[in-house]
Design a protein around this nucleic acid. Structure first.
Length: 491
RNA sequence: GAGGGUAUAGCUCAGCUUGGUAGAGCAGCGGAUUUUUAAUCCGUUGGUCGAAGGUUCGAAUCCUUCUACCCUCACCA
């Protein structure tokens, strides 16, 4: 670092601005490589980061990387000015530079820009990790990879400079979201925004982050979901709305959970959860097509076929299928006994729904590798879902499962204000008994329902997990630019 | 929250079992080399061994505590 500062000083003394304000870039590396015939012997102007230097005496080769890819540079003192050469002598790997030169192929067939003008665009003061690669495609070997996860997450900028596949993962993330947005906009959905700071949180079972507004002198909560606000918009008369929402949950962190994460929720009036299953499988399979041109995807070594339609399996049937136990209509004691028989640990305080959910999580969930809709959950676990039109004790709800993970959550929405009030009251009782994830009663939301909400279906999709699936990443931290970390210790 | 693992040079890692003045490759610096591509060759700089304490004549190495990260489980969608 000391040496780089000295080089910087020398550049300044030479009258070279090491941080010029502008450089007119006219070409991209990838485009030149892909259209060599068109560019051969033509002059091009490129800008980017110098990723390697190979000095061969009077001849020097380097690799310039811009956002499109890499291209080789050839420097020969005969071809450019002494001043440019002096600048080049003070250049390090990692510096951002601009070059002008003629395109040619070397005798080894590499598309190369023979540099005639050289401009320093930004002098780096810290060395970037040098990663070397040999070969291409399948036989590629990487040397000295920048791989330390802690440094990669804390200094994502370095990770992105050095690791192209990381950059590509995040580009895919953007394309996935774009694909969903296109799908919904094409169907006439309205993209909306609702409050992140809420006087009352709701729409999910989770503990919130709490904050304080100084001027109003009141407690505000960071949203854990946007469900109740979007339903207010349906009451207001919109037929179909969606929102990509950052949600915040004050809970544990692991490879599937980050305190802030992205959820996409959508609501459609005059439709039920059967419609929503159709929409979900269409939207998810479209993402696969947009991204890979195929319904077949790979996740952590598993082949997954996203081609619709997906099977629809009631939750209790899925349990019966895996365990042979029919839980329909069982009372609490019977459920406890079955759980024990299946070696599923239960807690004294749990109700029927919670025990069923636990048996499902333990015995069924890990088996659900191919896309499937698990439907018709216990009512007690779903305080915002409409009661099933035929099966008592259950609600019209589904969750899509892919690769053993829940990818979303959807219901036919509860629009009966009296039923909704009762459900809230049950939640309040749970809260009073110490369940800190039970939902508070939202009087304004009830008032909205009392003004009449049409029959409606809604869906929430965990975007981060979806991105993990489509980018074949094992941890949520690999699909978030800046995952939550403890403060760094500066020495 | 419990258990396991990791922490040594800018990057990747060896050394620790069995205590004796800190090592390699890459990067950097100096030199050779006019088409290389993990360029090569010669020389060379660089480390408070995550932090603190202890045992010892002597600690990267043994012990204790702490910190961060990773994994598994728990909690949790």
């Amino acid at each position: 670092m000391q040496i780089r500062r000295e080089k910087l000083q020398k550049l300044v003394e030479m009258g070279v601005n090491p941080y010029p304000a502008h450089f007119e870039r006219k070409h991209m590396a990838r485009h030149i490589r892909d259209n060599f015939e068109k560019f051969e012997k033509k002059e091009v102007t490129l800008a980017g980061r110098l990723m390697s230097i190979r000095r061969m005496g009077k001849a020097t080769f380097g690799d310039l990387e811009d956002s499109s890819g890499r291209i080789q540079l050839y420097f020969n003192t005969k071809n450019y000015s002494e001043n440019d050469d002096a600048v080049f002598q003070l250049t390090d790997i990692g510096d951002l530079v601009g070059v002008k030169g003629e395109v040619a192929k070397t005798r080894t067939g590499e598309v190369t820009v023979s540099v005639s003008e050289f401009t320093m665009l930004s002098k780096t003061l810290r060395p970037i990790p040098i990663v070397k690669e040999k070969g291409e495609g399948e036989g590629k070997v990487t040397f000295d990879a920048f791989a330390d996860k802690e440094t990669r997450y804390r200094q994502r900028y370095v990770d992105l400079i050095v690791n192209r596949d990381v950059r590509e993962t995040f580009e895919k993330r953007s394309r996935i979201i774009q694909s969903m947005r296109d799908y919904l906009c094409d169907k006439g959905f309205l993209e909306v925004e609702t409050p992140i700071l809420q006087p009352l949180y709701g729409g999910a079972a989770a503990r919130p982050f709490t904050t304080h507004h100084n001027t109003l002198d009141m407690t505000l909560y960071m949203r854990i979901a946007n469900e109740l606000y979007l339903k207010r918009l349906i009451v207001g008369g919109y037929d179909a709305v969606f929102e990509f929402a950052k949600d915040f949950r004050n809970e544990g962190m692991d490879r599937f959970h980050n305190p802030e994460f992205t959820m996409m929720e959508l609501y459609v009036a005059y439709q039920d959860y059967h419609y929503m299953m159709d929409l979900t499988e269409q939207m998810f399979s479209k993402i696969a097509m947009d991204l890979f041109g195929s319904y077949q995807i790979d996740y952590q070594g598993q082949k997954i076929d996203m081609k619709p339609p997906w099977p629809r399996l009631p939750l209790l049937e899925s349990i019966e299928k895996e365990t042979g136990e029919n839980l329909f209509g069982r009372n609490l004691d019977e459920l406890r006994a079955i759980a024990k028989k299946l070696h599923v640990e239960t807690d004294e305080t749990w109700g029927e729904g919670k025990i069923i959910d636990e048996i499902f999580s333990e015995k069924v969930e890990p088996m659900l590798i191919q896309p499937v809709f698990i439907t018709d959950h216990p009512l007690s676990l779903s305080p915002l879902a409409k009661k099933h039109r035929e099966k008592s004790g259950l609600v019209e709800r589904f969750e899509p499962f892919i690769a053993g993970k829940e990818m979303g959550n959807a219901f036919t929405e509860l629009n009966d204000p009296i039923d909704q009030r009762e459900r809230f009251q049950t939640q309040v009782e749970l809260k009073n008994r110490g369940d800190d994830e039970a939902q508070p009663l939202d009087e304004d939301f009830l008032r909205a329902l009392e003004f009449g909400m049409p029959p409606t279906t809604g869906l929430g999709v965990g975007i981060d997990r979806l991105v993990m699936l489509f980018t074949d990443q094992p941890s949520i931290r690999d699909v978030l630019f800046f995952p939550q970390m403890r403060p760094e210790q500066y020495k």
